[in-house]
């Protein structure tokens, strides 16, 4: 029986992480949103209350984007998953730390999704569904090949170890 140090996932060796491209995707999202916000706030405040305040507003927006990026960096780093012999573990969360264990035999179906932004970075999200609505085993930002591999492996294991309700 292995003991699991779920809180120190970052140091573990057999823990897999989402692709580094997920971080680039998040960074791009923040940069685009932050840029837009800075321009919008700067222009609106600049016209309404003078150029000095406009500049301050734009800088504040950029600072907020910076804070968001820092938080997202931590959140990106917190994702980890591990395929064990009998179950899949997914760890995530910065403020609220969550670890889910889903036995392969309990899997109802595997869902692979890729939104437009994710497709742009050739990423996909794999989600496991069980008969319990509360199970939340979702792994975002997997490279497409890894997502396909995981999906096939999970589907195979799920079939092999399937158990009735």
């Amino acid at each position: 029986m292995c003991t699991l140090l779920v809180m120190q996932v970052n140091t573990g060796t057999d823990w897999a992480k989402p692709s580094a491209r997920l971080w680039r995707l998040r960074l791009t999202e923040v940069a685009v949103l932050g840029g837009f916000a800075a321009v919008a706030v700067g222009v609106a405040a600049g016209i309404g209350a003078g150029s000095g305040i406009g500049l301050a507003g734009a800088l504040a927006s950029l600072a907020a984007a910076g804070v968001a990026a820092f938080y997202l960096r931590n959140r990106y780093r917190s994702w980890a998953y591990r395929e064990r012999a009998e179950d899949l573990i997914v760890a995530r969360g910065v403020l609220v730390r969550r670890v889910s264990v889903v036995p392969y035999g309990r899997m109802q179906f595997v869902e692979v999704t890729a939104g437009p932004a994710e497709r742009l970075f050739r990423l996909a999200t794999v989600q496991l569904h069980t008969a319990a609505a509360a199970s939340d085993a979702r792994i975002p930002g997997l490279e497409r090949e890894e997502a396909a591999r995981l999906r096939d492996r999970l589907a195979m294991l799920g079939e092999a170890k399937a158990a009735g309700l």
Binding site: V6, L95, V96, R97, R98, V99, S100, V101, V102, P103, R106, T130, A131, A132, A133, A134, S135, D136, A137, L165
Partner: peptide, 27 residues
């Protein structure tokens, strides 16, 4: 009957070195 097991630890719980474990059944 267990479908999945979840451990959740919020910031207050981390400070107190506590954690909550949910054992989910179908439903």
């Amino acid at each position: 009957k267990l479908q999945s097991i979840r451990l959740v630890q919020g910031p207050v719980q981390r400070g107190l070195r506590l954690a909550t474990v949910h054992a989910d059944a179908a439903g």
